[in-house]
Nucleic acid binder design. Structure first.
Lengths: 210, 210
DNA sequence: AATTCGATGTGAACGATGTCTACATGAATC
DNA sequence: GATTCATGTAGACATCGTTCACATCGAATT
């Protein structure tokens, strides 16, 4: 990208510049593509300058990951908005769960590099409250959006309350697993159509089996 | 490990020595821990010697991955043997599916480094037939073992035949996703008991929702 | 307004890694 | 017994993350 030729000695906002460069790298090549020196290069700065803002490579990586999770949350919220328009509470609640799943799977397909980054080396600390870098408009991270949909299902009487606890882990397992099979598992060569059909079947399985 | 002091100029069986060293590395530290130079060090050999047997780092990695998939298959077969003793065909078929899932989840918990390696950078080519390095006694790879269990369910009348096609992807998605949540996702700090309970719930969800 | 100072960026260096090219060894083949 | 070819060694290179000492500059203090 832009090797920003800089006139001032100080960059101005190097931290965010590095994160943005990292986002670009990782969007193309996944987590492996985040190389500290390249990020500084793109920011028009010496490698060591990064160490004024990040303790090490991993710290930079975590910042990039957080930003990616924010984008994911935004994608899920976009899908959610459609479902929230539905009138019937039961239908709406079910639609919300499906929307969360669709947003997740769609993101994995459309932004593979980012998705890989979001969950590389573990799905770390996704449930902790409200790192603002990880959220979008609603202020909820992806995990919380899922919980939100499940709550709505209980409220609408679609999901028995006694099966609510822990339900996010079951739903997430299914959707996360399929996302991985799609992006570079055995489903990576399936047509987008087939993938969508399987995704829908999976979401129905979750709904039935929860 | 053993830095095999060698008297002969030729190693004798460097290829397998490198794979075994790689297995040990990866068992501890996951896929990132496979470093070519360290593997050659442990084999008591110059770094370049590796290039007589593997085109590059990735080729070595794939060989290690294949070996790991073989161990996984063995773990799943061990679980399967218990279920195969059951008399009632329906119960047996259901038991086989559960056994496959348990083997998978148990392997993820017990051999985290190996599990991460098996599915790092994508669940590549797991469905292709019978790379012998990837199989255990039965000659079936993990994917085929799952298909085997599902076939048994159809045969026993537990799973409607029209829902059989593609069912492995639904089941695998769920189990694979949960494995990831357990090894370094939000469930990594849950007690082994809680993990097992959730695993059982997940498998029931699959059975119901397939 | 001049001085100080802490935050930010630079320069040069180190050890480690994957990989290349040229050379050495030795077991199998003719 | 000479030759050949698979296998291992030696040395080098570019790149990466990271460290230590030094440079620059905006903002706070006097």
């Amino acid at each position: 990208m832009s090797i920003a030729a800089r006139s001032t000695y100080h960059h101005g906002d190097l931290r965010t510049a590095l994160v943005e460069a990292g986002m670009a790298l990782v969007r193309e090549g996944g987590p492996q593509a985040l190389v500290l020196r390249e990020a500084t290069r793109r920011a028009g700065v010496t490698p060591n300058a990064a160490y004024r803002h990040f303790a090490n490579h991993q710290a930079l990586f975590e910042a990039v990951r957080a930003a990616v999770l924010g984008v994911l949350a935004a994608a899920m919220e976009a899908e959610l908005r459609q479902a929230e328009g539905l009138r019937d509470p039961a239908e709406r609640a079910r639609g919300m769960l499906a929307a969360v799943g669709r947003g997740y799977l769609g993101f994995a397909q459309a932004e593979t590099g980012w998705f890989r980054t979001a969950f590389a080396f573990g799905v770390h600390d996704v449930e902790v409250p409200a790192d603002p870098a990880r959220t979008a408009a609603k202020g909820l991270n992806p995990f919380e959006l899922l919980g939100h949909a499940l709550d709505a299902m209980v409220h609408a009487g679609v999901l028995p309350a006694e099966r609510r606890p822990g339900a996010e882990y079951l739903a997430w397992s299914a959707v996360h697993g399929m996302a991985l099979l799609i992006i570079d598992g055995p489903l990576r060569n399936a047509s987008a159509e087939q993938q969508q059909v399987l995704g829908a079947r999976l979401l129905r399985m979750v709904e039935l089996g929860l």
